[in-house]
Design a protein around this nucleic acid. Sequence first.
DNA 1: AGGAAGTCGATTGTCGACAATATATAAAAT
DNA 2: ATTTTATATATTGTCGACAATCGACTTCCT
Lengths: 234, 234
Amino acid sequence: MSMTQASVLTAPTAADLEPIEQTPLRVQIADRLRRAIITAKLRPGTVLVETALAEQMNVSRAPVREAIAILENDGLVETLAYKGKRVKPLTVREVEETWSLRQTFEVMAIRRILERRADVASLWIPCRAMRDAAALGDREGLILADEQFHRMLIALSDHHLLLQSWNALYLRINQIMALRNRRDSDDLAEIAGNHPPIVEALQLGDTRTAVRLISDHTRALRDFDPASIVEWLG
Amino acid sequence: MSMTQASVLTAPTAADLEPIEQTPLRVQIADRLRRAIITAKLRPGTVLVETALAEQMNVSRAPVREAIAILENDGLVETLAYKGKRVKPLTVREVEETWSLRQTFEVMAIRRILERRADVASLWIPCRAMRDAAALGDREGLILADEQFHRMLIALSDHHLLLQSWNALYLRINQIMALRNRRDSDDLAEIAGNHPPIVEALQLGDTRTAVRLISDHTRALRDFDPASIVEWLG
DNA sequence: AGGAAGTCGATTGTCGACAATATATAAAAT
DNA sequence: ATTTTATATATTGTCGACAATCGACTTCCT
């Protein structure tokens, strides 16, 4: 084997040959289904039939089955033996609980960040993104930057398990947000403006203020009419 | 069909015919494996081979596979594509994080219980059980009653999602406790004695004291030498 | 007509076999 | 001797088929 060929392998020049994605089918399928669920393309209560999905995606039932199992772990799907599988219905109670748990998680993160005096300057990045998105009326972009802000906040607390739990919870938050009736009355600028004070309080080491702000923040977001979400109570 | 036969069906007399258990194989297998893991019969790092397990339990690979997927959801097992599956190794960090998250959960439960003025009298039951077990030197019984106490505490907060998260977390706590070196130096009576003050504080509506006690409690339990747990770091 | 038993269709549960992949080992070439 | 290539083996990934179960509908008997 000559050196030139070796160099090609280690440093492709012209046509950059990216590694082809080699994720298991079950993961690809799970990702697709998850995406469909948290964007409300598959609404709560929708029954999932393995054979139908398998045929639709042109694969066998096995990976579909495993994908559904993954979503079950995510808490997005439930299985009733010999009965069927369906997107887990949402109750008002679950929405409430999701938000209160989220609040607990974020308060925990805040406390840890302050205890360890972590550098939170990176939080300004999503803050700026939110401000810009709000200025452009880009609702989608604002939502994304908001998620990035909060995920970053959790990550800064340097607690793997917390981040993991938060991620799982945030799946449902995404779902709920996609489900709830769009209210253009939402003031994007106000949402964006809520975040910088949190970063400031963190940089000042003001635990009390930071906790209060994050609590108010999640509480405010919770007060979307839950009734609009629960039209499919089977 | 005569009436006598019908009556037999509705009201079995002598040989009480209980409903036969009809849980899917995957669940039975998952339960067994989970039990083996949280009792440290299967130690962290142990590789799980589907074919071997299937043969050993005299079933096909499919339900074994699904059972392992369930345990993966529980966070007890990890899968590396085309590499293998193994009981998730434990790091000191994970042990620390498990306990800190537990503390957060229990503090949240305490706060909710006090906010809603829930009746916590039922907590005296496991308290008594712990006292009795301690008196008899029954370490096993004390551990069980302790778990019952804490699960009951979470349940009293009336928060499904929290209870669910706590249950998942407690799996790992069981595993860790089974793994750590038994120290007979533990004062059973002291452990049992730690709990009644919590109930008293709750009944008095003393939030500050209750939170402090539960925090001390979980903190104390965390201080088992983590080094003894991490002898299998692959 | 009413109720029990049987039948049918749909869906999940389980199985055995084959394909794809990764690791380790051995062989071969320079 | 070292690196490359080939091979072997173990394990997971995927597939198609069959069995078990459920629900609704039909049929039959009284």
